[in-house]
């Protein structure tokens, strides 16, 4: 784990991190990856991954509308809206 790895992961996660914190991320992530390395002490080739503790399958339902439109209610807590739309900095010139 090096500085450029940290910068790449932070970019993937769209996470702004301070330049001065990078050495600490290098140390912490290196240590955490060393900790999880222990998983490789066992062979799991024939083991089925566990996605749900009781192996439940996805429940399906009829394709009908059950939610009412609450756009105004939900947009009350948005940082910036206009005419029912969420505003972000200009993306296309």
């Amino acid at each position: 784990m090096e500085k450029k790895d940290i910068e790449q992961i932070a970019n993937l996660a769209r996470l702004g991190i301070n330049e001065k914190d990078i050495p600490e991320y290098v140390t912490n992530l290196t240590n955490i990856l060393a900790l999880v390395e222990e998983m490789n002490t066992v062979n799991t080739d024939d083991v089925t991954p566990m996605a749900h503790p009781t192996d439940a399958v996805q429940r399906l339902r009829e394709d009908v509308v059950t939610e009412t439109n609450q756009r105004e209610h939900f947009q009350k807590i948005a940082p910036q809206v206009e005419d029912g739309l969420y505003l972000v900095p200009q993306v296309i010139e």
């Binding site: 996660a13 769209r14 996470l15 702004g16 955490i32 900095p89 200009q90």
Partner: peptide
């Protein structure tokens, strides 16, 4: 710009331990 909005909102809004775990998970 939009990328700056994402990165700084998340960088400033989350604390150290949360950022650490997001980083491990993203990796």
């Amino acid at each position: 710009d939009l990328e700056d909005l994402y990165k700084r909102s998340r960088g400033e809004g989350f604390g150290d331990e949360v950022k650490r775990r997001i980083m491990v998970g993203a990796y």
